[in-house]
């Protein structure tokens, strides 16, 4: 402590109570946990193998939405180029499994780590740009990743690669392995994001989201925090890409490095609720449901997605979670409620 001042008697604050969360959050968390348990049990008695494969896509979308929100919603970094790491993760997992010979779960995790490592030098390039220039720069990086992948020997050029590590594994074991891996990773990514946002790093990120100049003036290392979430979100995109690759069994540059993934992530986060942990999960579920329901209608599906996105932005600018919770309810409690000390 510095020199005592007459302003602030120390004793007044000693029984200050700061509360984060409470039973409504616990109840919400319990419901989510029950859903996870159901999802873990369901392949045994509810879902067809086709459903199970589809649900892996949902888990990948939850990872993509959660990590894009971490980066854009909290870190203020609006990237439209995370497909760089989705693609790198997809190609990476196939090389790690087929060439290096890692078991599939290890290869998927390693692909995520590789993507995080790739993001670190990339960040030094991209962080020279701000705002719209940063966004365009990320897309340029994604295109460079795609072109380099096409030109590298052994990456299949324009037609891509197929995963061979699952050859000789029976279909049920393969589908179950990928399903549980995806479920565990989706839960782990959401929980890790929650714990990060609950830590002091998360407080700093939320401050950056609202006003980066003021955050810096209060001592928040803005650049370092942004680099951390960019690297983490890119690792997450790599995990999702790796899951998409081992689920679909093949990758091509056109599909894995497609900018449509960015459109999906933005849709998920915007309709769910930017800058909340619950929003991207809700958004991913809604997006997945629309995909399943409207898939048969071809172009009308895309028109419907666009119309829904416009309606949500106009009518519920804080997303559907924001509309439902009105900023008062959190399943993942980040807020602090302070109870004054009794005098």
């Amino acid at each position: 402590m510095s020199a005592p001042t007459t302003l602030t008697p120390m004793s007044s604050a000693t029984d200050l109570k700061v509360v984060r969360g409470g039973w409504p959050s616990l109840a919400g968390g319990g419901v989510l946990a029950a859903i996870v348990v159901f999802l873990a049990a369901a392949p045994w008695f509810v879902f067809s193998p086709g459903d199970v494969t589809n649900l892996v896509t949902l888990f990948a979308l939850i990872i993509l939405g959660t990590t894009w929100n971490l980066m854009a919603g909290y870190g203020g970094l609006v990237s439209i180029g995370q497909q760089a790491f989705i693609g790198a993760g997809g190609y990476g997992v196939i090389k790690l499994a087929d060439v290096v010979g890692l078991p599939i779960p290890v290869a998927v995790l390693a692909a995520g780590v590789v993507c995080a490592l790739l993001a670190l030098p990339t960040s030094f390039l991209l962080f020279r740009l701000v705002g719209g220039y940063f966004a365009i720069g990320t897309w340029v990086v994604a295109e460079v990743f795609k072109l380099v992948t096409q030109e590298l020997p052994g990456f299949g050029g324009g037609s891509g690669l197929s995963l061979t590590a699952f050859q000789g594994v029976d279909r049920v074991t393969r589908i179950a392995t990928v399903y549980y891996l995806a479920l565990v990773l989706a839960v782990a990514v959401v929980l890790a994001t929650y714990l990060l946002m609950r830590s002091r790093v998360g407080l700093g990120l939320t401050a950056i989201r609202d006003d980066s100049v003021a955050a810096a003036s209060l001592g928040v290392a803005v650049r370092r925090s942004q680099r951390l979430v960019y690297v983490a979100a890119s690792g997450g995109a790599g995990l999702a890409g790796a899951l998409i690759a081992v689920n679909g069994l093949r990758v091509s540059p056109g599909s894995m490095f497609s900018v449509q993934y960015t459109a999906f992530m933005i849709f998920i986060v915007v309709i769910g609720g930017l800058g909340t942990i619950e929003g991207p999960i809700l958004g991913a579920v809604i997006f997945f449901a629309l995909q399943q329901l409207l898939d048969a209608y071809g172009t009308w599906y895309l028109i419907a997605l666009g119309a829904i996105a416009i309606a949500v932005v106009l009518l519920a600018p804080r997303g559907l979670w924001g509309l439902a919770a009105r900023g008062r309810y959190e399943i993942f409690p980040l807020g602090h409620r302070v109870h004054p000390p009794r005098q």
Binding site: M10, A13, T14, L16, V18, R200, L203, G204, T206, A207, R209, D210, D211, V213, A214, A215, L218, G219, V220, A221, G275, G335, H336, R337, V338
Partner: peptide, 29 residues
């Protein structure tokens, strides 16, 4: 330039946590 999405207390907590480098309890006080 308040952090509009945070409460008043959380706004100030940013200062004590990062500016003064304090840990949880001390920062809150």
């Amino acid at each position: 330039r308040p952090f509009e999405g945070l409460t008043v207390f959380e706004n100030v907590l940013v200062g004590s946590t990062f500016g003064a480098g304090m840990r949880r309890r001390e920062a809150s006080e």
